[in-house]
Simulated assay, not measured.
Amino acid sequence: MTGNATILPPPTPENLAAFWPVGVSVVAPIAVVLAVLYLLGAVALWRRGRRWSVLRTISFLLGCGILFLTGSLGLNQYAEWLVGALVFQQITLMTVVPPLLIVGSPGRLILRATPHRGIGRVALRVAHGGLRSRVASAVLHPAVAIMVAAALYLGLYLTDLVSVAIALPAGHELLLMTFLVGGIVAAVPLWSSDPLPRAPSYAARLADVGIELQIHAIFGLVLLRTPSLLFSALSSPPPSWSVDPLFDQAVAGTLAWTYAELPLFVILIVTLARWGSRDAKLAARHQPRHEADLEEYNAYLASLEGRGSSSAGDEQGQRGG
């Protein structure tokens, strides 16, 4: 561990939410850089008189703000000693921040704001090549999101690999970056409206969300129901903190049951709404054609009926003659 628990005060709500200028995580400056680059692109479009959604801009900046706070508040210091704080960071970086960033459509902003000459042209070619590559197509497969969630919730914790990782030099930073990148990879197929090399069906998205909900539920249940400590590196908080490690472990399980599930339920509702909206648009688009076909078919039946009546009249006329 890189932190020194002897100089940390007890983890009260005030200390967890306080800003700590010393020991800020690397994700905090990353958030600042992302926000500045996004604003530069958005302002460049607005200056040219081109439209760019204010709501998308707010969403991306909100994601950057939450990312900055996750790495700069006291929570980041205590996450090297308390599993509840670390799981809170993980959930935030994997299920809260990525959707906000992705809804901001940074990929589309890059394509619109980057100049199509000089180094900008080279950057666009690289971006297009990467987007169309087999690697991008494979990474954005819905099954990858499930594997990421299983590896970073079940595999990392239930094998106590989290203790090995956090004991390494800069191990906490490595974990945070892994959570963030894994969350973005898992969220892109579910949230992105940018052109992707692989567009998952709505059925695949629903299956993905359903399985991830179960992974969170299993993870939370294990932490809540296990009567012994699971994590060797996160089971010895300083006695002066008066923190029960088992209670801390139960807090982490409760977070997995509640905080981690809420964004997935939002995805579930949004996916169902988009699916219904798409089906309604397709039905409205094909309705005039169906009505034309029906009218043509009715006209055909009417012509057959007219021919039948005409033939019957001719036969009666011949018999009368």
Rank of each mutant, 00 (worst) to 15 (best):
S72V: 07
N76I: 07
R225T: 15
A138E: 07
P13A: 06
S193Q: 15
G220C: 06
G210E: 05
L34D: 02
H141D: 12
I30M: 12
A18S: 07
L206S: 06
V83Q: 13
L168V: 02
P10N: 05
A31Y: 01
G276Y: 14
S53C: 12
L101H: 06
T254W: 11
I166T: 13
A42S: 10
L101P: 00
L196W: 01
P10M: 07
Q90W: 14
R121T: 09
G320H: 15
V270N: 14
Q318E: 14
Y259K: 00
A204L: 13
L304Y: 03
H172E: 08
G23H: 02
A284T: 08
I91T: 02
E291F: 09
L62K: 02
Q90R: 15
L140A: 00
E295F: 09
V96N: 06
G65D: 05
H116F: 01
R108F: 04
Q287W: 07
F179Y: 03
F265P: 01
L161G: 14
W81H: 15
F68M: 04
V126P: 09
A250N: 15
A299V: 08
A186Y: 00
P263I: 03
T159I: 12
L206N: 05
G321R: 14
S232A: 10
S240W: 05
S72Q: 00
N298L: 14
L229C: 02
R319I: 09
A260P: 03
A203S: 11
H116A: 13
S235D: 07
A28P: 08
